[in-house]
Write a protein that binds this DNA or RNA. Structure first.
Length: 422
RNA sequence: AGAGGGUUCGCAUAGUGGUCUAGUGCGCUUGCUUGGAAAGCAAGUAAGGUGUUAAAGCCUUCACGGGUUCGAAUCCCGUACCUUCUGCCA
């Protein structure tokens, strides 16, 4: 959500934002309906003021005169009701359109319609060299009895999986590793375990709805299963007014995550990369409403994720996502993609975005500055670690000729062995 | 899941149809007082919209959404949430 005043004052910015994000949005229609809304509002407010005044007079009058006076006000009542109805209808349409307004992407966001236009901004590490044909993670993990995909599909459905034995242990090890990482090295991030079962408002607030309806599971009671801990974590702070001294607020939140993956039927159909149910540690920051502050925290979130991947010894690169690959509310996004030998390509492990006040307007998250003036906070988030996805990267990069898998050094203490499969 | 109770200005409360323009206490801010503080006294103490050079004014908000009425915090209906009891349950 953007400020309607800002939208009206900067129509060209909004048009340019829609173009760059490859979203169709008619700003003229919005301005027109906003004019109508103001007009209807003025009409209603004037009628209401008149009604308030006259009704008040009835109240002050001698009781025996009241009935007669009240009778005369009946036409006015009808007028007020009509005016109010008018406002209600226009506002409904106005709100629907306001939810479609794209946030303005940063000038540094590359042009492009989809992820093929994302631009590499940095690379870390090198491709592992194999003197044998590397296997994919499905084969490796099945051979090592770390996962069962057949039974997964049978029990859970398409994209279902079981982790077992060392596969399950590896996931737990990653959770412990990332927990220790934040506890000891990033202690300003407070831990949270947050719900995945969330109400519609939370998804509207974070910007996943109304556009992402198809990607979300919904319960028969009307709640949704969230696709990321960001949703509940951000919503935790909704309707709050912070003092500026409390900012920035940093959280590392864990939850199960659910995604329908509608429209991805032919993509990544095998294995752990794209599943319906997974777990994620998510970094979330709320900070002062200042572009430079947002950018600084964006870089910080990126760096945290990079430190984790470096500790795990995974070769990765970072891309700046192009306009068409940004969500409605995102100002800028970096994806981190780590190397997958079986596909000779980088595959996403992290997604790092900032939103300016797009989310906090919808969620009503404010703070008061030192002068007591209130502002909507800025928000940002980045994956810290998502499992089981990253198991693919680990087992493939750490595989050996005999089909065994070395355990990254930082995980050895949590698994109690250096090689899986011996 | 069923039955009951509840939701009011930061907190606690008052308020069952018309000066509620939401009272009071606490808290907070400022001033007076004081050597300084406390106490006391006084004043102030929400958010959003509209409007304006600025303001005044006006509108909305007593969980949310409808309704009744000239007029709703107050009456009616629905929903959400909290809570108690019962049921179920890891």
């Amino acid at each position: 959500m953007l400020d309607i005043k800002f939208i009206r004052e900067n129509p060209d910015l909004i048009k340019e934002a829609a173009r760059k994000k490859h979203i169709s949005f008619d700003i003229n229609a919005l301005v027109k309906i906003d004019d109508e809304r103001k007009e209807a509002l003025a009409l209603f407010e004037n009628a209401r003021a008149e009604q308030n005044k006259l009704s008040d007079e009835v109240g002050r009058a001698d009781p025996k005169d009241r009935a007669e006076m009240a009778e005369k006000l009946k036409p006015l009542k009808e007028q007020v009701q009509n005016a109010e109805e008018q406002v209600r209808e226009i506002t409904k349409e106005w709100q629907a359109q306001m939810l479609q307004v794209p946030n303005v992407p940063d000038v540094s966001v590359p042009e492009g319609g989809d992820d093929s236009s994302n631009v590499e901004v940095s690379v870390w590490g090198e491709k592992p060299k194999f003197d044998f044909a590397p296997k994919d993670h499905v084969e490796l993990m099945q051979n090592l009895e770390m996962a069962d995909f057949e039974k997964g599909a049978e029990v859970s459905g398409f994209r279902g999986y079981f982790l077992k034995g060392d596969g399950a242990l590896l996931q737990f090890a990653l959770w412990q590793f990332v927990t220790e990482f934040f506890r000891t090295k990033k202690s300003e991030y407070e831990f949270m375990v947050v719900p995945s079962l969330v109400r519609r408002e939370t998804l509207l607030g974070t910007g996943y709805l109304p556009q992402g309806e198809d990607d979300l599971y919904k319960t028969q009671d009307g709640e949704y299963l969230s696709g990321t801990a960001e949703v509940a974590t951000m919503s935790y702070f909704s309707d709050r007014v912070f003092s500026v001294s409390e900012l920035p607020i940093k959280r590392i939140a864990f939850s199960t995550a659910f995604r329908r993956e509608a429209g991805s039927h032919s993509k990544d159909v095998k294995g752990l990369f794209r599943v319906h149910e997974f777990h994620k540690f998510e970094q979330v920051i709320l900070c002062e409403a200042n572009h430079e502050t947002s950018v600084a925290h964006h870089e910080e979130l990126l760096k945290n994720a990079e430190e984790l991947l470096q500790a795990l010894g995974l070769h990765y690169h970072t891309v700046a996502n192009c306009g068409g690959d940004l969500g409605l509310g995102q100002v800028k996004k970096y994806d981190i993609e780590a190397w997958v030998p079986s596909q000779s390509s980088f595959k996403e492990t992290h997604s790092c975005s900032y939103f300016h006040d797009f989310q906090s307007r919808r969620l009503n998250i404010k703070y008061k500055d030192t002068e007591g003036k209130s502002h909507f906070a800025h928000s940002l988030n980045n994956t810290a670690l998502a499992t089981p996805r990253i198991l693919q990267h680990i087992v493939e990069n750490y595989q050996q000729a005999d089909g065994t898998v070395r355990v990254p050094g930082v995980l050895v203490p949590y698994i109690g062995k250096e090689v899986i499969g011996k």
